[in-house]
């Protein structure tokens, strides 16, 4: 009868999908047209070596700057979703503090070259070896594996947008004050994602695969925090004086 649940109609799901998709497209760091025109050029060997020979703290700082830039776009994405700005300020902060890096990892598949196992970084496409100086090869390998597995799903921009919003509206984050409202938004986003996947005639397994990605994202973010703690123990002054303030606020 056109209803997916007593409270959400197909029209509402289409509208939510449209809003979230529009927010996503307006706030992607690299527009689709840019990606199509981009010369997907890999780093030259001497450029890889140049990144590898950077002092550990300099490479950490460079990556912190890049992550922070990407996060600012995610904040803008969240702000353009009506339901997000309807939440109390505490919960907006909680959701972004916990979920913004996860969305950055999701968005990474847009600028990932599966065939070469490279990602757009600092103007060119870089493989995991370019990040050697960070001293966290295991985390880098996992991040690349995650991007590759996301690419294998061949999601459309709309599906990617809805999955990003679904992750952002995680109702199980600690310190939420209006958990029920977040839960409601997450359920609606989930229904919209399900609806769009059905509309796009994707096989049933895609939604299950995406649900599995949620725990993979959490694991990546936890490991980022662990690596940052280990780095902080050795270079506390570098973080204090050279890392972007927003990065310190989110992960400090």
């Amino acid at each position: 009868n056109g209803e997916t649940s007593p409270t959400v109609s197909m029209a509402e799901l289409d509208h939510l999908a449209h809003i979230i998709s529009k927010s996503h497209l307006e706030t992607c760091q690299h527009l689709r047209e840019e990606l199509q025109q981009m010369n997907w050029q890999n780093l030259l060997q001497d450029e890889v070596e140049s990144y590898q020979s950077k002092p550990r703290e300099v490479m950490w700082q460079l990556c912190a700057v890049k992550i922070t830039e990407a996060i600012q776009y995610v904040v803008e994405f969240a702000k353009r979703i009506d339901g997000f700005m309807d939440l109390c300020q505490n919960d907006q902060i909680v959701l972004l503090k916990a979920g913004s890096l996860e969305v950055v990892f999701i968005r990474m598949c847009r600028v990932f070259d599966s065939q070469n196992n490279t990602v757009y970084f600092d103007g060119k496409f870089a493989g995991p070896d370019a990040f050697k100086a960070l001293g966290c090869d295991d985390l880098i390998t996992s991040v690349f594996d995650f991007a590759k597995s996301m690419c294998l799903l061949h999601l459309t921009e709309e599906e990617l947008a809805l999955f990003s919003a679904f992750v952002l509206f995680s109702a199980d984050r600690s310190w939420l004050q209006e958990k029920l409202q977040v839960e409601k938004m997450q359920q609606r986003t989930h229904l919209a994602l399900q609806h769009i996947l059905q509309k796009n005639q994707r096989e049933d397994g895609v939604l299950n695969k995406l649900r599995c990605k949620v725990s993979a994202l959490r694991s990546l973010c936890n490991r980022h925090t662990e690596k940052l703690s280990a780095f902080r123990a050795i270079y506390p002054d570098v973080i204090r004086t050279h890392f972007p303030p927003l990065y310190k606020e989110l992960f400090g």
Binding site: V75, E76, R80, I93, V94, K97, L246, E249
Partner: peptide
């Protein structure tokens, strides 16, 4: 939480660009 996340709070307050 707002006090500890002044930059994030500020970004959320700014009108969408």
């Amino acid at each position: 939480l707002k006090e500890k996340h002044k930059i994030l709070h500020q970004l959320l307050q700014n009108s969408t660009s």
